[in-house]
Design a protein around this nucleic acid. Sequence first.
DNA 1: CCACTTTTTTACCAAATGGTAAAACCACGA
DNA 2: TCGTGGTTTTACCATTTGGTAAAAAAGTGG
Lengths: 208, 208
Amino acid sequence: MEDGMTPEGGAKPSRIQLRNRKRILDAALDVFSMHGFRGATLDQIAEASGLSKPNILYYFAGKEEIHVTLLNGLMDTWLDPMREIDPGGEPLEEILRYVHRKLEMSRAFPRESRLFANEILQGAPMIGAGLVSDLKPLVDETAALIESWAAAGRLKPVDGRHLIFSIWSTTQHYADFDAQLQALMDGRDVHGEASVFLDALYRRTLAV
Amino acid sequence: MEDGMTPEGGAKPSRIQLRNRKRILDAALDVFSMHGFRGATLDQIAEASGLSKPNILYYFAGKEEIHVTLLNGLMDTWLDPMREIDPGGEPLEEILRYVHRKLEMSRAFPRESRLFANEILQGAPMIGAGLVSDLKPLVDETAALIESWAAAGRLKPVDGRHLIFSIWSTTQHYADFDAQLQALMDGRDVHGEASVFLDALYRRTLAV
DNA sequence: CCACTTTTTTACCAAATGGTAAAACCACGA
DNA sequence: TCGTGGTTTTACCATTTGGTAAAAAAGTGG
């Protein structure tokens, strides 16, 4: 009931709404991932999306809502590779598969990686709660799994949480610090080399 | 010659100038490292430094000059640990010492780490040139040293550049993504654990 | 074709922000 | 103590930015 003016409310979004919200979110991902939340402007998002600024504010209540919508929509995708670690699988295989999937995501979705990096760098003002509610249980569980593998002698002893952090940092580094890599690696196949390097790094660290 | 009004020019800065420039740079480090360049405002820097905004602009030509001054002043300090790798030392020792010094820097100077992280994330618009001129030669040289060690059989075979990247990312992660760690590690001694973990990670990866 | 709803545009604001001009203030050597 | 040059404040701008009101322009079902 109520809600007859804005697309905010609950029911069935029209085709136009679906299309335009998608356009806006994609443009916003471009802009936010390049300039950070405070550095991004609605005018840039408007320009990039091909819609006018007031028209954008017809679909989203404000700049912050666009950002939060992006963050929430991506959180799940971002955590998927970790969820797919199979407790019944071969430990080393499972972890290496996770590493390679994370590296591949940083290659295929650098904007998403930078969006998160920016948000965390600023102290996670908008998804701080989500980190605790969504991320923490998954990390706790995965770390426990890894350490149970180690305890069973199927991996070298290792701190599960710090292993996870190191995988995040080494893989996302290739997306987040791309500007640095571009300056240092003239024309090399950065991701190809990274794949080989990280495979060896974690194999040597974990293989019994 | 010339220069009789502003503290810009060349000669001997007065005690007041020295003190106030230091105040401004310290306040700016706080603000820039928290909000990024575009998210930081001169008013915030003014408030944090205890000086008025026009007073700040008496010492620095503009917001960007403050940022660039910070970045340039820190670049050297930031690279020092890598410079101190001793080609005549024991390879594994040298690299582990480098790892621990980087980790210690991320613990002692998180603001500096975030300042750089922000700048690189935005595409290094202000120090892009410095990366190529200062950083690249050092990285090239160090990577070559590491690989010569490996070729001599004193380390396991490894890609020098990617090893360096992994050291940067794993150590700086603890400063740059502190908000995430706070959400995930309730009350743990994060840096102490990290030191143990990283020692094992690189020891297993490199020890022959 | 008409009435009614959704979408888009036009024309604006108020606040924030980087920056400036010029007067007032202060330190300190002659 | 007086002048002089470095320092700080006061009073402003012009632009940018997030956001709004309301009219115009599509759609859309009957």
